[in-house]
């Protein structure tokens, strides 16, 4: 186990050094000198919408104003967003993550309902949490699986939910928060069906309804919108993950930019701007995640 960890660390250091030599991400002084902050956004739920607004779009726009620079939204997707930030391709093998190749850097930061995951933390700097989330198991309304009743013990509920999957096919999306590798679903005899027709998580429910699989993973921010949009066509079986946090992500060599973002985040939580954004884009989120928002306040 120790040898394996050392190997992973060596691979990570090698990837990091390579990244340092071949590409240089912009930190705060460079962005201020350039006069422009490039926001990497992914069309996802109400975080970044197709029309260019959204919770994270407004949040980052405010950050650009706070820095006194111009704001540019650069669309990306979950498969390419880290490559667009670091100029390197991400290769995961088990718990180890390596960066390979040279690609153009298209943005300075990611803010798009981006889940904080351990493997991502190996290669990115995260801000303080910007939003809560959780991943659920859903099924079509006509599925014979009955939703769990739910208890005070989340770990038990997750176990009960996973047990219900059985041998049925499960729709997942890799490299996103719906990646089965994040939740120990691989190698469990589950028929995993990777959704590749789109890199947009918003399409998971329509894909489930089009019989792409028997079951699907779905994150709570999408769930809150989809339960209104597709009411009566699918049901929530139970939780697959613990409560997660979403945050803005920065290159490892942009600590000043990350710190400036945290200062900005604290400021808007004090002056009420943050609450206004939550109310505007996720009006029900406060009731769904009371503990998270109590902590923010």
């Amino acid at each position: 186990m120790t040898a394996y960890r050392l190997y992973s660390l060596a691979a990570l250091l090698a990837g990091g050094l390579l990244a340092g030599f071949t590409t240089t991400a912009a930190d705060l002084p460079e962005i201020k000198a350039r006069g422009e902050l490039r926001h990497l956004g992914i069309r996802y739920a109400n975080f970044v919408t197709g029309t260019g607004d959204g919770f994270d779009a407004e949040l980052t726009q405010g950050f650009a104003d706070y820095l006194g620079v111009d704001y540019t939204l650069v669309y990306s997707d979950f498969y390419s967003v880290i490559r667009d930030l670091l100029g390197k391709n991400v290769v995961r093998s088990g718990d180890s993550v390596t960066l390979e190749g040279d690609f153009p850097i298209k943005g300075d930061m990611i803010a798009s309902g981006f889940t904080v995951l351990p493997w991502r933390e190996q290669i990115l700097l995260y801000s303080e949490p910007t939003f809560p989330s959780q991943v659920m198991l859903i099924a079509r309304a006509d599925s014979p699986i009955r939703p769990i009743q739910g208890s005070e013990d989340l770990a038990k509920d997750i176990q009960e939910t996973k047990a219900l999957i059985g041998s049925q096919s499960l729709l997942v999306m890799e490299k996103t928060c719906l990646d089965p590798a994040n939740y120990g679903l691989q190698g469990q005899g589950i028929e995993l069906r990777v959704y590749t027709k789109s890199s947009n998580i918003n399409e998971m429910v329509p894909a489930l309804l089009h019989l792409e699989a028997d079951l699907s993973l779905l994150d709570v921010p999408d769930l809150m919108l989809d339960m209104q949009k597709w009411a009566g066509t699918f049901k929530v079986i139970g939780p697959i993950s613990e409560e997660q946090t979403l945050a803005a992500a920065f290159p490892k060599d942009a600590p000043q930019l990350r710190d400036a973002f945290n200062d900005y985040l604290r400021q808007i939580k004090v002056n009420g701007t943050y609450d206004r954004l939550v109310q505007k884009y996720y009006p029900g989120a406060r009731s769904y995640f009371p503990a998270f928002f109590a902590e923010q306040n």
């Binding site: 009955r146 939703p147 739910g150 769930l223 809150m224 339960m227 929530v236 139970g238 769904y288």
Partner: peptide, 10 residues
């Protein structure tokens, strides 16, 4: 049949 804790609370 969704539970109040996971789903209906939304």
């Amino acid at each position: 049949g969704m539970s109040m804790r996971y789903g209906l609370n939304a």
